[in-house]
Write a protein that binds this DNA or RNA. Structure first.
Lengths: 351, 351
DNA sequence: CCCTATATACTCTAAGCGAGTATATAGAAT
DNA sequence: ATTCTATATACTCGCTTAGAGTATATAGGG
């Protein structure tokens, strides 16, 4: 998460010297939601598991598997999450890690003190799309349907130049409150950095920052749904990816962000792979997640050189060319070094 | 956070096909605690801000500033945290970021369904120890008092070879449940990797993993306080750092972990520095956090080369040698590139 | 039998990093 | 005043590795 730019905030003024105990009663009226962004790669497409939400004002929106945390039933947060996911989709999660806890969104639609407030704890789970023994509910959907501007596999997505860039630049020009103006970085600069405009490099790890910016600018459907004034000011708000219910798209953005970052320094790709795979399949999986194409020869050298894989001795035929050696993940690397990820060669800049 | 090794867990069995809504009532009986690990560097010593807790069975233990999240009063989690910190210490936080949300500790001391369960959201705040305008309560304490095994500034801490290594190895030998045995990595290997034993490299970013292991092995005071059986089996449990109340030491471990990791890839050291500083002071601050000594010439070259700092034109005299140029943080780097951290040259291995 | 797509192997080059050496300038000690 | 010492600053060297290019082997399809 890149919180640097938003880290410095003035604290909210508060009545002084209240003791922690005095507030316990009120604090209890907070529900805790567990949300799972379950990620896989199917046919070179990165996908997330979603279930269909109820129809609302903007139509049926997708939701991530989720449920409330109940400490009486669930010993741990992660245990509760696994239970909910299993109940709602039939899936038994493998690898899972906590992402972030959100609390400050969606308030605008609710009366300030009527509806119970909900804190969302987001989780990232990695699994194989194939071999899901018994998926009873939900569908795998490409994560680029929710974030089309993140898909750089066929070059720079046109939606950036056509829809996003002009509107964000207009938004950056708009008069802003003096509070925001005194922020260390001006809006126009934030826009350029976030979306790699005006010759700035595209940073594939700014997924969350980009979505937050679109939300803040009122360009995400969710901003309109939540009743943000910034959204009302657009007369021609374009469709920028599929929206999701509540703050689930934000959680998915966080999940993509984390996946892209982590794949580079920890061997987590293998959670997405079958037990045996070719190096080409491995590369395609990494590319599905990170975007641009990697240099094949270097990719192979780096992966093998890092001791991440070992040949099984078998080959996979019918690959369209010379039969490919099959490899498996060397779990022993975890014992040998501060286990590395898939070092990726920086692709040629495509801006 | 390194969750790889613990990520694969069997999900808790649950009654099937409960809908999220059905549990809302019960889920509400969860309190949310906001906890701040406030970090600074004072006289080359990394310090955290603690307040003194009440006396309990093992004496007065330190606590981090904390308080419950009350959504009616606080618009955001971070806002609530800032308010509590200000109330309890008089400090106005600058940089702050969320760390992790904990829920699965301390249950053993409580009756399973009587006391309200608490979920702790940990935050990391970075600030300058000096120039704290109006610290009304609390003291700055070296974080190595809580984690003496993390202090490698004067070589390998003796506490590892004398106290930790023999006991953890004994613990690794002990018969373990078949559930733990089937875990992908055996205990003995986890111990070696965690603490850099038997010639393995010391990884300064495994702070949390190490504390968790000591807790699991029953070697942390908190494990005894929480009534863990693993703690009762030691007849000569040594004092391994100062304990803290509740799970605060775990949160502090997470904070140290994050600080050490982040300082390398984001320019967060400067949150700990005064506006103007010499490169030597900057290096000492980095070393206070990361531990071992860095190569001075390379450090300077990397810091200046990355465009992180610019000379103010002034010099600082009375440094004991040639007067040192004063530098300031170049905030513009944030506009130029995916702003880097302080690239550190790996120090000569000291194992 | 040729074409093509893939797999696999080898080589070259530039950049960066770890590490060493040398010189300048202040305060402190004599 | 001179010497010593700690710091600051500048320059150099060599190894590793990442990025990129070229060449060869083996399958299926027309």
């Amino acid at each position: 998460m890149n919180m640097e730019l938003s880290g410095r905030r003035k604290p909210t003024p508060e009545p002084s010297h209240r003791t922690p105990e005095a507030d316990t009663e009120q604090a209890l009226s907070v529900g805790i939601g567990l949300n799972a962004a379950i990620v896989a790669v199917a046919e070179n497409e990165p996908v997330a598991l979603v279930v269909r939400g109820d129809a609302d004002s903007i139509g049926a929106t997708d939701i991530l598997p989720f449920g409330p945390f109940n400490p009486v039933e669930h010993r741990t947060l992660e245990g509760g999450l696994r239970a909910w996911v299993h109940d709602q989709t039939g899936l038994e999660l493998g690898y899972a890690e906590q992402l972030y806890t959100f609390a400050d969104r969606g308030r605008h639609t609710e009366p300030a003190d009527a509806t119970p407030h909900v804190v969302s704890i987001g989780y990232l789970a990695l699994t194989q799309a194939m071999g899901h023994h018994g998926l009873t509910n939900g569908v795998w959907r490409s994560w680029y349907q929710y974030f089309p501007w993140e898909d750089w596999r066929r070059g720079r997505p046109e939606i950036i130049a056509h829809e996003i860039e002009p509107r964000l630049k207009a938004w950056a020009e708009k008069p802003t409150s003096h509070k925001a103006a005194q922020s260390s970085i001006a809006r126009a600069d934030r826009v350029r950095i976030c979306f790699g405009l005006d010759g700035m490099a595209w940073d594939e790890e700014k997924v969350l920052e980009r979505f937050e910016m679109l939300y803040e600018a009122g360009l995400a459907d969710e901003a309109a749904r939540d009743g943000h004034s910034s959204a009302r000011e657009w007369t021609d708000r374009p469709k920028l990816g599929l929206p999701m219910q509540s703050d689930h798209r934000r959680i998915l953005a966080t999940a993509i962000n984390r996946t892209r970052a982590k794949i580079k320094y920890r061997p987590v790709v293998f959670e997405l792979m079958p037990d045996e795979f070719t190096l080409y399949e491995l590369q395609k999986t990494v590319e599905a997640i990170l975007g641009p194409h990697l240099h094949k020869q270097n990719f192979r050298r780096l992966v093998e050189g890092a001791g991440l894989v070992e040949p099984t001795g078998e080959v996979k035929t019918r690959t369209g060319g010379r039969p490919a050696k099959l490899f498996r993940f060397r779990r022993e690397v975890l014992l040998e070094r501060p286990a590395p990820g898939v070092r990726v060669s920086a692709p040629p800049s495509r801006n």
